[in-house]
């Protein structure tokens, strides 16, 4: 589904990703762990098509298509979703309006008619239940005045509404209390099918108790330095990243 080959990315002339490679197949869950500032969010942003990154070499294929040639919104419409580490507040635009626009843009890209209002409402209710969102939230402005945890939960809710093929969760677990963590993880597990895939960026092994990854990658200084199964996360928790510093 996704092939990242030897990706080099700079910001303002400073290289952040230094030969990052990763292959993801349908149905897989990949966890990426790594110290602060190693380029995890950069990877997510580059995949999602944010401006301001210079891709100096490398290749990204998404279902065989050159991802780097697509605009950010086109990538999203083709089923790529990024749950932001720091979700943005959008004053004046309600969650309902925002999601309706998102759902309809996606449908338009697939050649479908806009969703019927009744159907949309039903879908909203269903997915809200999935992440146990409060009801009043539909009419509130996107993320505005939301607590840190609520924002993260909203990311998962949006993901549920858009049902992406590939979702990148950038530290969605940070700032969540124990209950919220369980809710979010359950949401992800319910959405996980043999047809889609997840990249889970996290600092904490405990998330991986809930969302069990097929692979755990250690990212260090802009590339993957080690890949293993879920036990690698436990090992990291015990030993830290020091072991990679010499590499």
């Amino acid at each position: 589904m996704l092939q990242i080959k030897n990706l080099h990315v700079s910001i303002d002339g400073r290289e952040i990703l230094k030969g990052f490679s990763l292959e993801i197949n349908k149905g897989e869950i990949h966890a990426i762990m790594g110290p602060n500032g190693t380029g995890k969010s950069t990877l997510g942003n580059v995949l999602a098509g944010k401006d301001g990154y210079e891709i100096t070499s490398g290749e990204i294929l998404f279902n065989g298509e050159n991802l780097l040639e697509l605009e950010a919104h086109e990538r999203a419409q083709k089923g790529l979703f990024l749950a932001f580490q720091y979700p943005v507040e959008i004053p004046g635009v309600s969650n309902a309006n925002f999601l309706k626009a998102a759902v309809n843009e996606q449908r338009k890209a697939m050649g479908l008619e806009p969703i019927a209002p009744g159907e949309f409402l039903k879908m909203m209710r269903e997915k809200m239940e999935l992440v146990e969102m409060k009801k009043d939230f539909i009419s509130r402005s996107v993320n505005q005045g939301f607590s840190g945890g609520e924002k993260k939960r909203n990311e998962i809710f949006q993901m549920a509404m858009l049902n992406p093929q590939l979702a990148i969760l950038d530290e969605t677990d940070s700032g969540l209390d124990i209950d919220a963590l369980r809710i979010v993880a359950n949401g992800v597990n319910k959405l996980h099918t043999p047809e889609n895939a997840f990249i889970v960026i996290t600092h904490y092994q405990r998330l991986l108790d809930y969302i069990v990854p097929d692979f755990v990658h250690v990212m260090f200084d802009g590339k993957i330095v080690k890949t293993g199964d879920k036990n690698l996360a436990l090992e990291l928790e015990a030993k830290g990243y020091e072991q990679f510093e010499l590499a």
Binding site: G52, A72, L82, P87, S94, E105
Partner: peptide, 27 residues
């Protein structure tokens, strides 16, 4: 830019995003 990217990442292009923000602001 971050606000616009948030919209784009949800499949909403920049122009539509601006229109939505502005409409919300002026409602």
């Amino acid at each position: 830019e971050d606000m616009l990217f948030y919209f784009q990442q949800r499949g909403i292009d920049e122009e539509t995003a601006v229109a939505m923000i502005v409409n919300g602001f002026c409602k």
